[in-house]
Design a protein around this nucleic acid. Structure first.
Length: 319
DNA sequence: AACTCAGACAACCGCAGCCCT
DNA sequence: AAGGGCTGCGGTTGTCTGAGT
């Protein structure tokens, strides 16, 4: 694990203006942000940075929270199933990492992006260098191969993978609450080994583990204040889009941009002949889905149909 | 043990979109 | 309509780690 910046608290400029810190986050900063988020919930990030006593810009706090501190993050290596799903989603969505991440619970867009650029891209390149024409672009390579090219499609694997927090064999998404100490990363207690600082944060007394796990789920860890976290999980999943929301909106005029952008509505796919709930599809029958129905017309059907032969989620539609 | 280097990952930067005034 | 603030996203860079020599 990296050493955090040792200049913590030392960089204040002469004119009494606090110089915003950059670079790696220290355990102390993490703890401040975590504590603040747990007790106050998500709000204006610049306010959070200020009120939490952090010499960071709001943007940096947001990034840290989303990519590292969110308790619902699934840490550790990507499973083969996750790899398959990423490759497949990328073949449909392209570099829309946030949309891909929205379909891999516990994973962040940054994490997926890094994984793609460092691992999958290379693997695909090696694979295609022996089997395809050299002028294939990344996306065309992927479209050609899809999940079924480099990786065989195992529908069951992908179906069970989606929204299944237990799918990772190496990590657990669930934070551990011991007494009034909260460890968001139960398997990473030693990640501050270099400094010896433990990664345990005080938990507001009103929070139970169940509250936290359910309350933290949602769009990029959108967090309600502790006193607002209810018992119903707020699972969110945006509709698959192979073109922009604006284009979809222009095509049918039926998408609520605000709700789509800020709090992805939970989705029921209502085909004319067949309908199913995402919750059912992903085995989430125990959770409360409260989203609007999404009509098939709101999908980019052309784009989807172009890829549908390799899209296991929608096999039922073409058979 | 020391050095190099590639891989992995965390964080920053710039831009676009939205909202509010 | 214009401008500023904020958020979110994707691309890129910087830094640490571990394997290889």
């Amino acid at each position: 694990m990296r050493k955090p910046d040792q200049n913590m608290g030392k960089d204040r400029v002469n004119n009494n203006k606090i110089k915003l810190r950059k670079g790696l986050w220290s355990p102390e900063e993490d703890e401040k942000l975590m504590k603040y988020m747990l007790t106050n919930g998500q709000g204006c990030w610049s306010d959070i940075a200020r009120n939490a006593g952090l010499q960071r810009c709001g943007k940096s706090c947001r990034l840290r929270w989303i990519n590292y501190l969110r308790p619902d993050l699934k840490r550790g290596a990507f499973s083969p199933q996750e790899e398959e799903l990423i490759i497949h989603l990328h073949s449909i969505l392209g570099n829309r990492w946030s949309q891909i991440a929205a379909r891999l619970p516990g994973r962040t867009d940054n994490e997926i992006k890094n994984f793609w650029n460092s691992t999958i891209k290379k693997r695909l390149k090696n694979n295609t260098s022996t089997s395809s024409s050299p002028n294939n672009s990344d996306s065309s390579e992927l479209r050609d191969h899809g999940v079924g090219g480099i990786f065989p499609v195992h529908e069951h694997d992908i179906m069970t993978l989606c929204m299944d927090s237990s799918s990772s064999s190496s990590t657990s998404m669930q934070p551990i609450v011991t007494g009034n100490q909260f460890d968001p990363f139960p398997l990473l207690n030693n990640r501050y080994d270099m400094t010896g600082a433990p990664c345990l944060f005080d938990v507001p007394a009103c929070l139970t583990q169940g509250d936290m796990v359910q309350g933290f789920y949602g769009d990029y860890g959108v967090l309600e204040p502790a006193n607002k976290i209810g018992l119903e999980g707020d699972f969110s999943l945006p509709p698959l889009e192979s073109r922009s929301i604006e284009e979809n909106n222009a095509a049918n005029g039926s998408i609520d941009m605000k709700s789509n952008n800020n709090h992805y509505n939970n989705t029921c796919f209502n085909n004319t002949d067949q309908s199913f709930k995402v919750g059912d599809m992903f085995g989430l029958e125990n959770h409360h889905w409260q989203g609007e129905n999404l009509r098939m017309g709101e999908w980019d059907l052309e784009g989807l149909m172009d890829n549908i032969s390799s899209f296991p989620f929608l096999d039922f539609q073409v058979e």
